[in-house]
Design a protein around this nucleic acid. Sequence first.
RNA 1: GCCUCCAUCGUCUAACGGUUAGGACGUGGCCCUUUCAAGGCCGAAACAGGGGUUCGAUUCCCCUUGGGGGCACCA
Length: 484
Amino acid sequence: MTTKVRTRFAPSPTGFLHIGGARTTLYNWLYARNHGGKFILRIEDTDEVRSTADSVTAILDSIKWLGLDWDEGPIDEKTDRGPYAPYSQMQRVAIYRRSLDQLIKEGKAYRCYCTKEELDEMRRLAQLEKRPPRYDGRCRSLSDAQRAATEAQGKKFSIRFKMPTEGVTVVDDIIRGKVSFENKLLQDLVIWKTTDGPTYNFCCVIDDHLMEISHVTRGDEHLSNTPSQIQIYYALGWTPPVFAHLSMILGPDGSKLSKRHGATSVLEYRDQGYLPHTMRNYLALLGWSTSDSQQLFTDEDLIAKFDLAGCQKSPATFDTVKLQWMNGEYIRQTPVDQLVELAKPFLEKAGLVGLPGPDFKRVIALEHEKFKLLSEIPALIEFFYKPIALTEKAHKVLGGSGVKAVLLGLAEALKDFAPFEDKALEAQIRKFCEEGALKAGQVFHPLRAALTGRTEGPTLFLMMEIMGRDKVIARLREAAAPLA
RNA sequence: GCCUCCAUCGUCUAACGGUUAGGACGUGGCCCUUUCAAGGCCGAAACAGGGGUUCGAUUCCCCUUGGGGGCACCA
């Protein structure tokens, strides 16, 4: 019998999709696609105070931008698609309540009347006495009479799940192997809040079972929840899915990746000008690799080769430098027409769209191999469109002796020169050098400085062709004017 | 404090007892070149430490050290 593969990503909408979540999504997606299975998106919004609709939107947008699709789940803020709808937990409360009733009826869960203060005190004492800080089970064996008396006082209650007190629970993890936990260390967790709503560890189990999830792949931080969840599966008479816990992503200083390390939201990477394909490829390699250490993958390649069993157990450091290198690789692989489209929002933002000047396509093609980020395109090409501002180095180059005569001479030599094209221009300018007994460098460097305001930039003559005669002559004269 | 996981170049990683410990990013040098890139070639750079097991350990076991995660009526 073959089990069909069904994976899921189940974010709680309390913020943006961060890099770690993106990788978890990617791995689930890859695994499902690799096995011809389904990838499900489920929204875990049981935290009523922190969950927001904006977060749901941001998460959906992030996953879409990454270029990943899901077979079941919310398709927008209002609509769900798939046979197990709804896919947002707050719309599934009636379902959880049925399982809750079952557990209570079978004596596997009980009412707990402890207040937050009592629980805090319990934890504090336990810590003090160097015992594991866990709920001591004081409401577990209340008699009916005690219960009635307590409730007569109008005390509110939560509902706790009775964990086994002996034996071990073994988590069989694809990545980590068998991990055992002593049951006496598990605590009776709250599965239903005082506010009459379900908690994460409860919903998660029920949904993964009902949605027939075959593989639960999630972050390392959930590993210690897993034995408790497994016990809930057992209590409900269900078989747990296969688990895979991914190691964390760390910042450059070795601590958990967070805001102080820079961008953590997927959307920020979009806004910085990374390509979705770069993110997919880079994230895939952060904790997973092929035995030949292949670096660049097409999506088909990635789907074909990806395997959860090959994932690294140790945490990985997120390296922006390598990310940028990879983005440069993929930008170079992008056809110019497409690159122009991708650059549009950035050109727009920089105020270059609509200004007189050459076609973006020619300019972008000219500098194509230089871009590492889409966001740096405007700065590298803006001298074609905006008045130039001299960098310090360029200023120095123009201040050299004899530069004024060179610039004016060039303006004269080019003012009627035709055709105003790459090769012809090069021949003409080299001739100009010869006639003036000038070294190429003595002419090329001031020329570049005058035309671009900088000392580095695109290949000179093709750039002049694209810039056009009028602008070239004007800038030569403009640069020469203030010189002695 | 308790539970649990992890440990190869600066970083991501390969190695499934026997290798000159391989690749990639970054880095150093050279080449190409009007500049900056891109590209090509060459180089430096790692098995955390200590015990075992074994003819032989980066690889298996134990301890130490270091790091991560968890210990909520948050997910």
